[in-house]
Design a protein around this nucleic acid. Structure first.
Lengths: 247, 247
DNA sequence: CCTCCACTGGGTACCTTGTACGCGGTCTCG
DNA sequence: CGAGACCGCGTACAAGGTACCCAGTGGAGG
C-alpha cells in the first residue's frame, strides 16, 4: 500500500514494525503543537516552531505526521477528547446535554483556534467518534436516528455558533496587542461613525442598550442553552421526562 | 493619520483626492478574488493569482488593499450582500426569517470558503451591518434587544452550523479530486473498520440507517429550520402571531 | 554472532506566498 | 507651470511547507 492510498491519518499506523526506537511520538508532537496554538494562535504553530518546542529537527516531524494539515486534524481530535462525556447517558438527558455544552464551551475557550478547523464526519478521529457516541447516546432511546442527528445538530450549532462569536471578538482584541479597553477606544471612531450616520438604528441600539452581554458571557450562554433544551424537550416523547426539567 | 492608525478597512478611504486615475478598484479585485475562491478554494486566491486574473501587477493590488487579510474581509462582506433581505420586516416574521435562512444557505453553498473566515461585529462591513439591521429588525418590535440578539444568534447558529457540516464534507470530496462515489469507495475501509470494531454502535447506526440526508439536504435544512422557528415563536408575545404560522 | 536493510534523526535546498521598497510616469492643486 | 502626491509594477526578501539525501541504528534471518 503506497502512501497515497491511506484514507486518512487514522488509517496510517504511527510506528513501523522495526528499526531504531523513535525518540518522539505523535502524542508529543500534537501536545506541543496544541500548546503553541493555545498561546499564540494556530498560525504560530509552524513545523519549525513545533520542532524547536520539543527539541527535534524540523524534518523529523515528518516521520510521525504526513503533513501539517494532518497534524491539525490530530490536534483537533485531541482537544475533542477534553470534553468530559463519561457516564453518558446517565438517565437525565437534560443534565447530560448541559454538561456536554458546558464542556464544549470550556474547551473552545481554551483552544480558540479550533474555530478555524474544518472537520467532517468521515475523517473523525477516535475522540470525536467517542464524543458522537456518547452525545447521541443520550437521546438514542427516545427518538429515531435521523431525528437524533437533527436535535444534536441543533444543540451543537447553538453551542459552537455562540462560542465562535465570543472567540472571534476575543481574537481580534488579542491580535491587536492592546488591552480590551484600549481596543474599544481604538474602535470607537468606527462605531461612532456608524451610529452618527443614522443608517443603522438596530446596530446603534445594540451598542447603546445591550451592555449586559459583556458582564457574563457564560450566563448568556446558559440562558440560550435552556431555550435550546426546551426546544429539544418538545421533540421528545413524554417518556423522556427529565428529573431536572424546569417545566 | 498614519496607516497604522486606521481602525479597519472600512475606515480607510479607497481613493485619494488626486493623482493618476486608478485602473482597477477594490470592487474589481474583490470580485476576482471571490471568483477564484469559489472555483478553487480560498487558499488558491493568492495575490499573484488575483493579479493575473485581472491583468494587473502583483504589487498594484496593494494600492487598493492594505493586506490579504483585509481583502478577505472585503470578500466576506461582499458575499454577505448576496443575501436578499429587502423589504424586511414584511410583517410576517416567519416568512422573513425563512427567507433569510434560505438565502444564507444558498450563499454559503455558492461560496463555501466563507466557513473559514472569522468575522466579528466590530469589524463588520456595510453589507453585514445592513444584514444585521434587516434581520434583527424583523423581531425588534416584539422583544427587547437582548432577547433579539439571543434569538437571532439561535437562528444564525443553526443555519451556519448545518451548512458548515454540509460544506466540510463537500470540501473533502472536492479536495480529493474524486467523484463522490469514488470518494465514498475510498473511504470505505475506514468506515468499515469502525463499524466492525463494534466500539461505535451509534456511528454504525448513522451509517446503516440514516440514508435520507443524502437525498435532500435542503429538505433536511428546512425541517430543522421549522423547529428553530417554533422555538422562536415560543419566546415571542402573542401579539407576534405570524400569518404563515403552522400552529 | 554477523549481516542486512527498513527504519531513525535531521541538514540542505527548493518552491510558494505575502509584502517592503523604490523607480519612472501622471494628474491635480497652487 | 512647477511640485508633490499618487499610480502601476519589477525586484527582492523573509517565512513557511516539504522533497531529498545521508549517516547511523537495531531487530530478523542466517
Amino acid at each position: 500500500m503506497t502512501d497515497a492510498e491511506y484514507v486518512n491519518i487514522w488509517m496510517r499506523p504511527e510506528r513501523a514494525t522495526y528499526g531504531p526506537t523513535p525518540v518522539y511520538s505523535r502524542a508529543k508532537i500534537t501536545e506541543a503543537a496544541v500548546r503553541i496554538a493555545d498561546a499564540e494562535g494556530l498560525e504560530a504553530a509552524t513545523m519549525r516552531r513545533i520542532a524547536a518546542e520539543i527539541g527535534a529537527g524540523v524534518m523529523s516531524l515528518y516521520r510521525y505526521v504526513p503533513s501539517r494539515e494532518n497534524l491539525v486534524e490530530l490536534m483537533a481530535d485531541q482537544v475533542m477528547g477534553e470534553i468530559d462525556v463519561t457516564d453518558m447517558p446517565s438517565g437525565d438527558w437534560r443534565a447530560d446535554l448541559t454538561r456536554y455544552a458546558d464542556g464544549l464551551r470550556t474547551m473552545w475557550m481554551r483552544h480558540p483556534w479550533i474555530a478555524t478547523v474544518q472537520r467532517s464526519l468521515p475523517s473523525f478521529g477516535p475522540n470525536q467518534l467517542l464524543l458522537v457516541e456518547r452525545l447521541m447516546g443520550v437521546l438514542d432511546a427516545f427518538v429515531p436516528i435521523d431525528e437524533n442527528l437533527d436535535l444534536v445538530a441543533l444543540l451543537n450549532s447553538y453551542a459552537e455558533g455562540t462560542v465562535r462569536e465570543e472567540i472571534s471578538t476575543a481574537r481580534e482584541v488579542q491580535r491587536s496587542g492592546l488591552s480590551e479597553s484600549e481596543w474599544m477606544a481604538r474602535n470607537y471612531p468606527y462605531i461612532d461613525r456608524l451610529v452618527k450616520s443614522g443608517e443603522y438604528p438596530i446596530f446603534t441600539k445594540i451598542v447603546m442598550e445591550a451592555r449586559q452581554p459583556h458582564l457574563s458571557r457564560e450566563a448568556q450562554f446558559r440562558h440560550g442553552l435552556q431555550r435550546v433544551l426546551d426546544c429539544i424537550a418538545d421533540a421528545l416523547p413524554s417518556t423522556a421526562e427529565s428529573p431536572t426539567s424546569a417545566h
